[in-house]
Design a protein around this nucleic acid. Sequence first.
DNA 1: CGCCACTGCTGAATCGAATCAGCCGCATCA
DNA 2: TGATGCGGCTGATTCGATTCAGCAGTGGCG
Lengths: 340, 340
Amino acid sequence: MKTRRRVMLSDVAAEAGVSATTASYILNGRADEMRISPATVAKVQAAVASLGYRPNRSARSLRTRRTATVGLISDQIAGAQYGSSMLTGASLAARELDHLVVMGESGGDPDLERLLIEEMLDREVDGVVYATRTARAISLPAGLRGVRAVLLNCEAPGEQVASVMPDDEGGGRAAARVLLDAGIDDVWVIGEDPTPDATAGPRRLAGVRAELAAHGSAVAGVIACDWTVEDGFEATSAWLAAGGRPRGLVCMNDRLAMGAFQALAEAGYRVPDDVSVVSFDGSALAGWLRPVLTSVELPFRELGALAVRRLLDVDDRGGTVSLPMAVREGGSVRASAEVG
Amino acid sequence: MKTRRRVMLSDVAAEAGVSATTASYILNGRADEMRISPATVAKVQAAVASLGYRPNRSARSLRTRRTATVGLISDQIAGAQYGSSMLTGASLAARELDHLVVMGESGGDPDLERLLIEEMLDREVDGVVYATRTARAISLPAGLRGVRAVLLNCEAPGEQVASVMPDDEGGGRAAARVLLDAGIDDVWVIGEDPTPDATAGPRRLAGVRAELAAHGSAVAGVIACDWTVEDGFEATSAWLAAGGRPRGLVCMNDRLAMGAFQALAEAGYRVPDDVSVVSFDGSALAGWLRPVLTSVELPFRELGALAVRRLLDVDDRGGTVSLPMAVREGGSVRASAEVG
DNA sequence: CGCCACTGCTGAATCGAATCAGCCGCATCA
DNA sequence: TGATGCGGCTGATTCGATTCAGCAGTGGCG
């Protein structure tokens, strides 16, 4: 069992007593089309099995210009706290379709991004998923023009590109509904997002507004701040200090809610007895808080998986597909029975 | 500007008025070795630039059996809360060495893992990084035998494989030192790890013990539990209820510490005034707690980067390289001035 | 003057599969 | 009986690079 030369197609053909051409047709599922007899097919398959033949992908790619590989380029997906499971979803979906994922993280550097795209195209990936950590509007990178591509967690307005997004507006409606169902219609929103081009915040807020409006009420107030724990703490503290009297709070993400929890606790309010809190993301953090935070979940794995499936689906018509966000119940909203 | 045939080496050669052979030598940096005149080199380089030539990687790979690509296979790195920045480090390091990363996540399924390894080898990756979410001892996957590989965050005892690990024992010593420097030598450890083969817990604990021993004291007690927030809360609560009188706490990771914070707060202890807490991981979570948690940081990016560098370093001698863990100061340890 | 070494380059083979164009033998049909 | 068609297979070419072996031309040397 020395290091033997790797088995190649001609070995299989020789073993089966046919030509390499015939073996190739059989291995590519063209046996019927080429009217290869079942007996021959069986012989070749036996030879493949007994020799443990695995095709040389480079040789095949040189001829076919396909590599059974998809590129996944992102700004910060991999290193991010949340959202990196988009990679898991993408990887699994690719595997199901007999592909592998070539990954590249640009860190937001446009030069590195361009370089990574070029390197991927040089390696003739069958398509590129372009993903962003935060949901937002982008302009399509020049390197992707004319390339088979799917945007993940972002959209390029005015371009003919397929896009996979979470349904943030639907999520916003769901969040509001959770509070309304608990008998709370006195709702403040923490974390109106100041980031330009970000879509998550505005859409979630629009959803909250729509649902409240459908119920005949309106958002009691909106506090603008960034989306960190610190911001949530400070914004909430300041609001409380200014006389804010909280009953229902919608936080734009779980970290903000954590900060809000801290501020509420410090001010002597209890969750959910005094204040009900709902947030977005459905991250692990939500499950770590006491009480567990009720949060509208981002379906990261499904997003990643769908992006890859659409990328490899020749019938895909393009356009944006939004994935629903489900409410993950915690204990941060008072039971509706308490309505009085 | 119609879709033109892609520029190939022979086009460059023709444009420069030389043979493809010569152009190839020049592009591969063998101009000197082949005694190509500077004038010819310049002509070819000009042709490359003016035609925008990019080599066909598949063709090159077919000949050279190298793909400028490394495989990165993991159990749960991508989807994990922490540690996914190993991917960032790996991606950036690969980029610096003109490689791309082909990623695959097995979710811990050995069949899928075997499949992914095979697929990567079929694509002739130049090497494979095998990474685990938690630091531990593994047995080398059969598919990697005889393959250029580096283990990341794991070790295969008795095998001749390169391994990149965090220095958990050094981290443990550093954690203990933080408490000793604050004048605290009454130290309890929360989270002795019951998982078999896990190395992080035992090594961190050994480090804590060693440092305390060097100071002439010893660990006051160790509480065994899993490493979740919930476990940290419950273990700490139970210990407090049983009369535990805390002064210094070492938590085996940040999530445990979060649970401990919750339990301590509920029992009326204040951090750091009553209890000083140090933990491990240096995750984002540590920065979200109030007070900010002092935590001994896992250098995830550096781990990922080093694994790739070693993989591509032909001079690498194998063996385990441990990366230091630095203390990230928070406010969870009382100032040493208070000693008295 | 003839041999050799060196400079600067090139022709042709090669990597391992995919695929086009056809070939042989036999049955069918007029 | 010769033309036609079809079933079942194969030889030769191609994909686009890398690389081995070698070829002209020139100058030095004995």
